[in-house]
Amino acid sequence: MLTQKYINSLAYKIVGCAIEVHKNLGPGLLESVYELCLIDELKNNGLKVESQIYLPVIYKGEKIGHDLKLDLLVEDLIIVENKSVEVMLPLFSAQLLTYLKLTNKPKGLLINFNCENITKQVVSLVTKAFADLPLE
């Protein structure tokens, strides 16, 4: 049975993998480099990862010409958006929240690798889908 505790433990594992990548590479590289290394680290930790997933935009019941692109989807539950920026903008969280709502996934992680301490640069967001799950 899917629970909040399970999803949170999965998110904890993802953040641990991001910390490992950051510890080995440090700040200042391109987002794509961190993403490839994070995918490798997640897979080495036994997690199922899909990358660069296209999400169709449906407007008033019709698909419009542009797709959104999710960076990573882990275990078909958690969307991970990777950044390598000097400043985390509120727009990044808004974007992730929109992806979560459109996909009905319970949790998302926004991770900025361009920093000294990655744990201070992780934003965790949850949706109603998460809130509706049992705690344990």
Rank of each mutant, 00 (worst) to 15 (best):
I64S: 04
V122T: 07
G108E: 01
L10D: 02
E20G: 03
E86T: 14
A94L: 14
S51N: 11
N82E: 07
I111V: 14
V49Y: 00
N104T: 14
K5P: 04
S124L: 12
K60G: 03
L36C: 08
F92G: 02
P56T: 12
M1Q: 12
V49I: 03
G65I: 02
V126C: 04
T3Y: 01
S9P: 03
H66S: 11
K5L: 06
L73Q: 00
S32H: 12
V87D: 08
Q4T: 06
V126H: 01
L77A: 05
N117Y: 13
C115I: 13
V85G: 13
L30M: 13
D76H: 01
L30R: 12
G108H: 10
G65F: 00
L70M: 07
F113N: 02
I118Y: 12
V123Y: 05
Y59L: 14
V57D: 05
F113D: 01
G61T: 09
L47P: 04
L135C: 08
L36N: 14
Q95K: 06
A18S: 10
L89I: 13
P134Y: 07
M88R: 15
K69S: 06
T127P: 04
D40I: 09
V87S: 12
G16L: 09
E35F: 03
V33Q: 04
L38V: 08
S51V: 03
L47A: 07
L10W: 04
G26R: 10
K120H: 08
K120G: 10
N112C: 04
M1W: 00
Q4W: 05
H66I: 11
E116M: 13
I58K: 10
I79F: 07
K43R: 11
K128S: 15
N104I: 11
V15Q: 10
T119D: 15
T103K: 13
N114L: 09
K69T: 11
L73A: 03
L133R: 06
V15G: 06
D40M: 02
L47K: 12
L89R: 15
K63Q: 09
L133G: 07
L70Y: 00
I14P: 00
H66K: 15
T98H: 07
V123N: 07
L70F: 01
E31I: 10
F130N: 03
L133M: 10
N82P: 05
L68K: 15
L97A: 15
L72M: 13
L10M: 06
E75K: 09
I118M: 11
V126Y: 01
K105L: 15
E81Q: 14
V49G: 00
L36T: 15
P27D: 08
N44E: 14
L70P: 02
L70C: 02
L125F: 02
G26K: 14
G46R: 08
S32F: 02
K105T: 14
E81W: 03
Q121W: 01
K107Q: 12
I19S: 08
L55V: 15
V87C: 06
K128Y: 09
I19T: 08
K43Q: 11
I39C: 05
E35I: 04
L68Q: 02
K120N: 15
Q121S: 07
Y6G: 00
N82D: 13
K120L: 12
V49L: 04
E41V: 04
L110G: 11
L47E: 06
V49P: 01
L100S: 03
L109Q: 11
L125M: 11
D132P: 05
L135T: 12
V33S: 05
K128L: 12
V123T: 10
V80R: 02
L135S: 13
